[in-house]
């Protein structure tokens, strides 16, 4: 470990002006990669939440018709639903409750109640039960004309498709960031080789192995990467906390605060480690390749 953090004794890479700003570049790259990763895992977590919230629930909608008694139709629909095995809880929403659901979008509930509102029945499916929803929907439609069983599945499928697309974009962004980081490191390592060519030649002629020279480069650049990656990650986590706080204040059902499962935190913590490993391997390959071209 002390060798890893030790200075490069002969090459004195620490005094190079060319690589001094590398930690800033690495910090920026790690910050962007961390945000992309946070986004990736947060979306995954949100999809799980939406799925859990929606998959156990059904809604029955009875369209407004001023010519009939909607309450009687509601009661009939409730009794039909209760007769279907596997449906645990069947509850008709009052007009007040329906108006309250629409209040965030339409405004005052007393005004909403004047509108021709459909009536809603909330249905919960028993856990571990296999309900034939198609048969249930047919039975309901035949016994209570105008009643529609809504499973939320088409809506959820569209949301999941959107979320997966965003996840793919995040993964592509991470890949691009990795490629750009490697290119920057390659450029910095090559510049270092050119700047220290004379000393490298002397080291060779007094019997230094290629690996001896490469080790000084790879340790130095790995150290720079670590010094850049840690603040980059810290800032990304800070930004995530600020976003979580802002999303909480928004109190919107769909837009949830970025939250990650345990695996997400592990992946985030691995970013600096991966950057250091990527840097070490890249620099080693570049230096050994360049040294091979010398005798």
């Amino acid at each position: 470990m002390s060798r890893f953090f030790g200075i490069s004794p002969e090459l004195q890479l620490e005094k190079d002006a060319s690589s001094r700003y590398l930690p800033v570049v690495i910090a920026t790259m790690v910050f962007l990669a961390s945000l992309a990763l946070i986004g990736l895992f947060s979306i995954n977590s949100a999809i799980g939440n939406w799925s859990a919230a929606v998959s156990g629930n059904l809604t029955v909608e009875i369209a407004h018709d001023s010519s009939i008694d909607l309450s009687a139709k509601m009661e009939k629909a409730v009794s039909v639903l209760r007769s279907i095995p596997g449906l645990e809880n069947v509850r008709a929403l009052s007009l007040d409750e329906t108006a309250e659901l629409l209040a965030p979008y339409l405004g005052r509930t007393d005004v909403i109640k004047q509108l021709p509102l459909p009536r809603l029945i909330e249905v919960t499916i028993s856990e571990n039960s296999a309900v034939d929803l198609l048969a249930a929907a047919k039975k309901l439609a035949s016994e209570v004309p105008g009643a529609v069983l809504n499973t939320h599945r088409p809506w959820l499928d569209k949301m999941i498709l959107l979320a997966r697309s965003v996840q793919t974009i995040a993964a592509i962004i991470m890949m691009l960031i990795s490629i750009v980081t490697v290119i920057i490191i390659v450029f910095a390592a090559r510049t270092g080789m050119v700047m220290h060519q004379e000393i490298i030649e002397v080291l060779h002629l007094i019997g230094a192995k290629d690996s001896y020279i490469a080790k000084q480069f790879q340790n130095y650049f790995a150290r720079l990467s670590l010094f850049g990656a840690l603040p980059g990650l810290a800032i990304a986590i800070l930004v995530m906390q600020v976003l979580a706080w802002l999303a909480d204040r928004l109190e919107a059902g769909l837009i949830s605060a970025p939250s990650m499962m345990f695996e997400g935190w592990i992946a985030l913590a691995m970013i600096p480690v991966l950057v250091v490993i990527l840097t070490t391997i890249t620099v080693r390959l570049i230096v050994l390749g360049s040294l091979k071209r010398m005798m």
Binding site: H204, L205, I206, G207, A208, K209, K292, M295
Partner: peptide
């Protein structure tokens, strides 16, 4: 071999 060069150079 390239890996033999350091030991040779140490003799010079």
């Amino acid at each position: 071999e390239r890996s033999d060069l350091p030991s040779f150079r140490r003799k010079i």
